[in-house]
Amino acid sequence: MHALANPTRFMRLAGAVLPWTVAAAAVFLAAGLWQALVVSPPDYQQGETVRIMYVHVPSAWLSMFIYMVVAAGSASFLIWKHPLADVAAQAAAPIGAAFTAMALATGAIWGQPTWGTWWVWDARLTSVLVLLFLYLGYIALVNAFDDPERGARAGAVLALAGVINIPIIKFSVDWWNTLHQPASLTRLDAPAIHSSMLVPLLLMVAGLFMYFLAVLIIRMQSAMLVRRSRALGRVARGTAGSRA
């Protein structure tokens, strides 16, 4: 693990891994979409609208998982000053925001035929909206300073403070009386979902997870290029200053 904290070594490995994550994402998503739209049965209550679950649930799970990646990267950056941890956190945040927006939008579209409303201010929906604002706040904060180091530190503190929202999202359906249904899959006993629906759901989760890894690597490569440009710019300015 420590060897991966070396940016050059990590980026060499990430470049080698990237084509495999892209290929895995394509395979899992193709299989998942086929299963979700064609093979899986309609729900006995919801009918065909249950197919929205195969994009809504994976995006909601990933929105929370990615936030934990951002928080872990932020903690690692603040405590151990790992240069890559901050790069990973900042690269993951826009992907997490996109997945959160996707979960909210697909949830609203699913809510209209199922609940008869696009939106309701219940604990689950509101806490996921707060998650989106946390992502947007983090992104705005890290870019609000002229000194990138200060922006990274301020963003990392916000990201760590926002972790409190993750258990609130997870347990909101148990703690409060919500319109949103309780957990069907992540339960201590057996999942309350038939295998004909579980298989496409897990395929979509795997596909979107691989997509996340691929885009994360691409965004980390961009961030490393920016850092090299900044370092080169500093050297060039230093050389010019010493000549003056």
Partner: peptide, 22 residues
């Protein structure tokens, strides 16, 4: 069936977000 518009709209949102971000 009758709710096709909702299903396709959800998948269209997902595809747009994923391809846009990529």
């Amino acid at each position: 069936g009758g709710h096709a518009g909702f299903v396709w709209a959800a998948y269209a949102v997902a595809v747009t977000v994923l391809i846009g971000l990529l």
